[in-house]
């Protein structure tokens, strides 16, 4: 079974954890223990191929510059999240692709752009079109999600697995790549 490492990036408060929790725990979980080893691991079937995803949730560590660098080095696919209710969070992620490219030292990076909090339509600050445009520039899929209503949550992770399947990452050890 192929294993995928997916990093969830985005500013504080966009609901990265909520997405992660929804995905790893499904609808119900009796006990949460975020400190156990396989808490962030989940098996899913994508296009009838069983796969294991390990999610690297960056929530809480956004401000630690060098930790983010380490996360990116470790990841293979990237879920980049902003909140549709905050233009600032959308601005924050605009340079994300370059930043990942700089760290990874490769061009074709599997990623997906996600506008979260789609349930708060009345507070929307970022039009869907803008998200779609940025995704087009990046050449990656785009989804609007609601962790609250479990809208498109699984789809995000299925999509990123597909992305990783179509652009197989040359596994550089991330350490000595020449940028």
């Amino acid at each position: 079974m192929r294993e995928y490492k997916v990093v969830v990036l985005g500013s504080g408060g966009v609901g990265k954890s909520a997405l992660t929790v929804k995905f790893v725990s499904g609808t119900f979980m009796e006990k949460y223990d975020p400190t156990i080893e396989d808490f962030y691991r989940k098996e899913i079937e994508v296009d009838s191929a069983p796969s294991v995803l390990e999610i690297l949730d960056t929530a809480g560590t956004e401000q630690f510059a060098s930790m983010r660098d380490l996360y990116i080095k470790n990841g293979q696919g990237f879920v980049i999240v902003y909140s549709i209710t905050s233009l600032q969070t959308f601005q924050d992620i605009k340079s994300m692709k370059e930043q990942i490219m700089r760290v990874k030292g490769i061009e074709n990076i599997p990623m997906i752009l996600v506008g979260n909090k789609a349930d708060l339509e009345h507070q929307r600050e970022v039009p869907s079109k803008e998200g779609a445009t940025l995704a087009q520039i990046w050449g990656c899929p785009f989804l609007e999600t609601s962790a609250k209503n479990t809208q498109n949550v699984n789809e995000v992770f299925i999509e990123i697995v597909r992305e990783m399947n179509t652009s197989p990452v040359k596994e550089s050890n991330g350490c000595c790549c020449i940028v």
Binding site: S11, G12, E62, Q63, A65, Q91, D92, I93, K94, S95, E98, Q99, M101, R102, G105, I106, E107, I178, V179
Partner: peptide, 18 residues
Amino acid sequence: SSPSTPTKPVVFADWLAG
């Protein structure tokens, strides 16, 4: 050896603005 990573420095957003 370099891939065409942007030669012009991108202004990294206020990612660390906090």
